[in-house]
Amino acid sequence: MSDESVTLGKDLAAMLKGGVIMDVMSVEQAIIAQAAGACAVMALERIPSDIRAQGGVARMSDPQLIADIQKAVSIPVMAKVRIGHTAEARILEALETDFIDESEVLTPADPFAHIVKKDFTVPFVCGATNLGEALRRIEEGAAMIRTKGEAGTGNVVEAVRHIKLIAQEIESLRAMNTKALAAFAAEERVSVALLTQVRDAGRLPVVTFVAGGVATPADAALLMGMGAEGVFVGSGIFRSQHPERMAESIVQATVHFADFKKLLEVSTGLGAAMKGEEINTLETRMQERGL
């Protein structure tokens, strides 16, 4: 029942909108995230900044950790698999994870292809840096897109780049005639039908969150103001000085992104945000994995 599970995944993604999905590495952190107002948690053994620091191959987390978190919270629980790793995804499907993130944060498993996501009963979210990449993932069956940003850096610049780029590319579709649209579709390896649908609607056909580098309430508000429908926060919460306060404030800033007095209030007295890194000093650019 492939198409149906993608439709239901899109429906679940609609329920997550306006919310914050938080990376958690333990039951304790998952409970903190839920209490702070997370609309879902991403269960994983190492958050992206640790993966960067420690190196090595990053794989799917131990299902025991994910199962413990599923028992501890009532909100949806997501987990990551390596790009193209269909077997890891089957394991998470058997565990009844609410969403699977086929993620560039983990070490890619397949150099040629992504998972054929339509074959699963559990929906997928995938990263994208531009329109073509987002549409290829959607044609494979992704029910939700997140911009990739640059995970684990605490630096919002790549998240901004990707959401702006996607918006600009959608805008430029409007000026294209049938021939130009067909050429773009061929170049990006996506169907003309999907591209036409995006041009006519002026947006992606799935819910689009931002991810990769969000470290403060102001970062979340910035991206919501650019049209993001919600926010993933990885290292930004549990690598800050006061995770509870930071988590709650990012939730508030995501909801009230256009209320600047409220933003002032929730941004004040939070303690130190995660340290963060300059993009041009990075050894690995995770966003370049699995295009």
Binding site: M15, L16, G19, Q34, G37, C39, I75, V251, V255
Partner: peptide, 9 residues
Amino acid sequence: GESTVMAKL
């Protein structure tokens, strides 16, 4: 949506 989130807010 998520009732825990909405209730809190």
